[in-house]
């Protein structure tokens, strides 16, 4: 596995360049909104085993942190801003996420199918 990694390492630059192109080439996109410390919709369905571009709009004036232990993602989204988070490729299943600043209400899950 290590040698595999080494092979990949010097290609990282290319991977990064290709990354942007891949985004431009049209990855599946899903949008999510934060409104009144709530995720709308609270359930998202995404294709499994594919990298997905998640766009989160924070419609509240206050910042919120999108966090998911299952997705290994955390990102602060300031009030009125938009954030892009790449997730996946995911195995089929449910991946809960929450807003760390208002975890009681800001809850949701991503369902990979």
């Amino acid at each position: 596995m290590t040698s595999h990694w080494h092979k990949k390492w010097y290609k990282t630059v290319i991977v990064i360049l290709l990354g942007w192109m891949a985004v431009a080439a049209g990855r599946p996109e899903v949008t999510l909104e934060i409104r009144d410390h709530l995720f709308m919709p609270s359930e998202l369905t995404v294709p499994a085993n594919t990298k997905v571009k998640l766009i989160v709009y924070n419609r509240d004036p206050t910042p919120e942190e999108f966090e998911s232990y299952e997705l290994n993602r955390e990102k602060v989204i300031m009030g009125g801003q938009r954030a892009i988070i790449f997730i996946g490729p995911l195995a089929p299943g449910e991946y809960p996420f929450f807003g760390e600043f208002n975890p009681k209400t800001a809850q949701g899950k991503i369902i990979a199918q």
Binding site: D36, L38, S42
Partner: peptide, 9 residues
């Protein structure tokens, strides 16, 4: 269960 509607959870 916990559910969102009418703008609240």
């Amino acid at each position: 269960r916990e559910i969102n509607f009418s703008g609240y959870r």
